Amino acid sequence: MLALAAEADVKRHVLTHRHTDLKDEFYARVRAQGHVPDSERKLREELRKTKKRLAEVIEENTRQQAEIETFARVVNVLTVENDQLRGQLGRKRASVVALHPGPAPGA
Rank of each mutant, 00 (worst) to 15 (best):
V75L: 13
V74H: 06
G90T: 06
R93K: 15
T79M: 08
R91K: 15
D83L: 07
Q88R: 13
A94I: 01
G90I: 00
R93C: 07
L89C: 13
N82H: 04
R73V: 00
V80A: 14
R86H: 10
V77Y: 04
N82E: 06
G87V: 02
V74I: 09
L99T: 05
R73E: 09
V96R: 15
V97K: 15
F71L: 15
S95Q: 14
V77T: 09
L78S: 05
E81F: 00
R93M: 07
L99M: 12
A72P: 00
S95L: 10
L99N: 08
R86P: 02
T79D: 11
F71D: 12
L89F: 09
L85K: 07
N82G: 01
H100Y: 13
S95P: 02
P101C: 10
A94R: 14
V96P: 01
S95G: 10
Q88T: 03
L78P: 01
A94W: 03
L99Y: 04
N82R: 05
R93P: 00
L85W: 03
P101W: 08
G87P: 02
V80K: 05
R86S: 12
Q88V: 01
A72G: 04
R73A: 09
V77A: 11
Q84P: 00
T79L: 09
R91Y: 05
V75P: 01
R91T: 05
L85F: 06
V80R: 05
D83T: 04
F71R: 09
A98M: 12
R93S: 08
N76A: 13
V97N: 14
G87A: 06
K92I: 06
V74C: 07
R91I: 00
G87Q: 04
R73F: 00
A98T: 08
G87L: 01
R73C: 02
V74M: 08
A72C: 07
R73S: 10
V77L: 09
V77R: 11
L78M: 09
N82I: 02
E81D: 10
G87Y: 04
K92P: 01
R91F: 05
H100R: 14
V96C: 15
T79A: 12
K92Y: 07
R86T: 03
H100K: 14
F71A: 12
N76R: 05
H100W: 09
G90Y: 04
V80G: 05
V74G: 03
Q84L: 07
V97R: 15
L78N: 06
V80Q: 08
R86F: 03
V80M: 11
Q84D: 08
V97L: 14
R93V: 02
G87H: 01
N76E: 10
V97A: 15
V96K: 15
V96A: 15
P101Q: 14
L85S: 09
V74R: 08
R86Y: 07
A98W: 06
P101E: 13
V97G: 10
R86E: 13
V77G: 02
D83N: 11
L99R: 10
N82Y: 00
E81I: 03
F71Y: 12
R93E: 06
N82L: 08
N76G: 06
G90C: 07
P101I: 03
L78C: 06
G90K: 14
V97M: 13
F71H: 12
A94H: 10
P101L: 12
T79I: 03
V75C: 13
N82T: 01
V75G: 03
F71Q: 13
R91C: 06
L99P: 02
D83M: 04
N76C: 06
N82M: 06
L78F: 02
Q88A: 11
V75F: 07
T79E: 09
V75D: 08
